[in-house]
């Protein structure tokens, strides 16, 4: 933990390269969509950031289950790291979606299922962080965090279904649902390349960030331990 391992530096460089290529693909390589104009390009990173958000939520729930079974504090560090990264990425995804919606749906905000569910997930993350901040004892904090991450993860599908039953205008680009949804479009081959490559790149970005955040989490755990020892 003292020094950064070499393979992590290698991963950092790789991630940076992947990312630059993704930016090139989205900005230059992918064609401009004709009915929406340039703003359609927001879509690539919007979906990719949202994907990372969901990925992190899933990792946090799995880490929660593993912590409760094994009681190893490392899983708690992993859960917190995943939630924090997802909090940031989901926030970006929501804002980017909102920016896209303004010219296309003519409004910054609609109570569409995905948008609303994403916001509720964001609130669950925030509640998770607040819960942890209110508890001093590290073991109890880890247990409560794990339980809350699992509960949150299980409630999200039901939340999504219940809001969806209310009505939607969100375009379903992959696995097409309602073709009348405004802002839906068919992806050309080049768009598909940019889209799937962005998803791939952001998965790598997620792993890389997670590893760094984990290192920080371990350091924080050691500081906390020492602080208790010194003050005792």
């Amino acid at each position: 933990m003292e020094t950064k391992p070499r393979w992590l530096t290698v991963l950092d460089v790789l991630t940076a390269i992947f990312f630059v290529v993704a930016v090139f693909l989205v900005f230059v390589f992918a064609p401009m969509e004709r009915t929406m104009g340039l703003v359609q390009k927001v879509f690539y990173f919007h979906v990719a950031t949202a994907w990372v958000g969901m990925l992190g939520f899933m990792v946090a729930a799995v880490a929660g289950i593993l912590y409760l079974i094994k009681g190893d504090r490392q899983y708690d560090t992993l859960g917190l790291a995943a939630v924090e990264i997802s909090l940031v990425f989901f926030f970006v995804a929501i804002i980017m979606g909102s920016v896209w919606a303004r010219p296309i749906w003519n409004t910054w905000w609609t109570w569409d299922p995905r948008l609303t569910t994403a916001t509720i997930v964001e609130l669950i993350y925030a509640a998770y962080i607040m819960l942890r901040q209110g508890i001093e004892d590290p073991d109890r904090r880890a247990r409560f965090g794990a339980v809350y991450a699992i509960l949150g993860f299980l409630s999200v599908p039901l939340t999504f279904i219940s809001i969806r039953l209310l009505r939607t205008i969100h375009p379903v680009v992959i696995g097409s649902g309602d073709p009348s949804a405004e802002g839906a479009f068919n992806m050309s081959p080049r768009m598909k390349v940019a889209f799937f490559y962005s998803l791939f790149t952001f998965s790598v970005v997620f792993v890389d960030l997670l590893l760094h955040r984990l290192r920080m989490g371990k350091l924080a755990a050691r500081v906390e331990e020492l602080r208790l020892k010194v003050s005792a």
């Binding site: 609130l123 925030a126 607040m130 901040q133 509960l151 409630s155 939340t159």
Partner: peptide, 17 residues
């Protein structure tokens, strides 16, 4: 520590359905 304000913040996002 923050128990008075914590419950609604924890509970409401989960009971949306």
């Amino acid at each position: 520590r923050t128990r008075d304000i914590l419950l609604p913040i924890l509970l409401f996002p989960l009971v949306v359905p």
